[in-house]
């Protein structure tokens, strides 16, 4: 059993190292800084600039979290402090279901509804033409995907607040919302941050659903209605076919390595900040 325990830790290290070594050729060939900040992506000429992909990933995840966070916080507060028992009982399986639906189904739904909606209704109001396969579509689909994750964690977080504390506030004549605002949210801020970080790292890595709706054009998106090309989609679309070109393969592995590093960093940072927050306030 000790062996298995060590194996789990080793697996993490092995994944990290092997991705690193696979990405090493491209990092030797090009300056790391150039790789990260150049917008030139011409694999056949040997230009590998990851900026469009990094920015795409970033924008799509950002939109997703901006949409998802208020919905999730409001809904989980509602479920925790306001909803009756029967509503809660009804909602739990709904959240479970939403989180169980595979990404590909979200992708299908996105192409069927969100993409035409953006192309025909929303985009014409702002820009001359848009195919609908856009940053916005990716963000919306991704938001719908991470909402159940956020809600299920946040409901847990809110539930862990001692009832005495809420009673203390209510017994002083605070309204429910005052209690939520000043006690519940304050007390659970670290939990909300942790949930957000987890949802963000899920959003960064999500492949299929985003790939199906975001257009996959190598460019730096300038508006919500531009197509974009996130890192996971880049890997999914090209990996496996590009083995004939070692530097291309290495470049794709570099993007996998980037995703890996982002996830590790996010986990590390969120742990660290959580510990710091708890140390500082000890609430």
């Amino acid at each position: 059993m000790l062996g298995i325990a060590i194996f789990t830790i080793l697996l993490l290290i092995i994944i990290g190292l092997s991705l690193f070594f696979k990405a090493l050729p491209i990092m030797r060939e090009k300056n790391l800084w150039v790789l990260l900040t150049s917008a030139q992506w011409k694999p056949f000429k040997g230009d590998f600039g990851f900026l469009p992909f990094i920015l795409s990933t970033f924008y799509v995840s950002l939109i997703a979290i901006i949409i998802a966070l208020p919905f999730s916080i409001l809904t989980s507060i509602y479920l925790n402090s306001y909803a009756s028992k029967s509503v809660k009982k009804f909602f739990e399986p709904v959240i479970d279901l939403l989180s169980g639906i595979p990404p590909i189904i979200y992708g299908v739904w996105g192409t069927l509804t969100i993409v035409p909606l953006i192309a025909n209704k929303i985009a014409p109001k702002f820009v001359e033409f848009s195919t609908g396969y856009t940053v916005l579509a990716g963000g919306v689909v991704l938001a719908v995907m991470i909402i159940p994750l956020l809600i299920s964690i946040m409901v847990e977080v809110f539930r862990s607040i001692p009832k005495e504390m809420i009673d203390a506030s209510l017994s002083m004549g605070a309204t429910k919302w005052q209690t939520v605002k000043k006690v519940i949210l304050r007390k659970s801020i670290s939990g909300i941050i942790a949930a957000t970080v987890l949802a963000l790292s899920r959003a960064f890595g999500e492949t299929m659903a985003v790939l199906m709706v975001c257009g996959n054009i190598t460019q730096i998106p300038h508006s919500l209605f531009d197509a974009c090309y996130p890192l996971p989609a880049l890997i999914a679309n090209n990996y496996g076919e590009m083995l004939s070109m070692p530097s291309y393969e290495s470049a794709l592995m570099f993007s996998a390595f980037l995703l890996f590093i982002i996830v590790v960093l996010f986990n590390g940072i969120s742990r660290f900040t959580l510990i710091q927050i708890e140390k500082r306030y000890q609430f």
């Binding site: 789990t8 697996l11 993490l12 994944i15 092997s18 991705l19 987890l198 790292s201 899920r202 960064f204 890595g205 999500e206 492949t207 996971p232 890997i235 999914a236 990996y239 794709l252 592995m253 996998a256 995703l259 890996f260 996830v263 590790v264 996010f266 986990n267």
Partner: peptide, 13 residues
């Protein structure tokens, strides 16, 4: 961390 690693990375790895 393993839980958070995107599936595409598992695929590539």
């Amino acid at each position: 961390i393993l839980f958070g690693i995107p599936s595409i990375v598992y695929g590539a790895f």
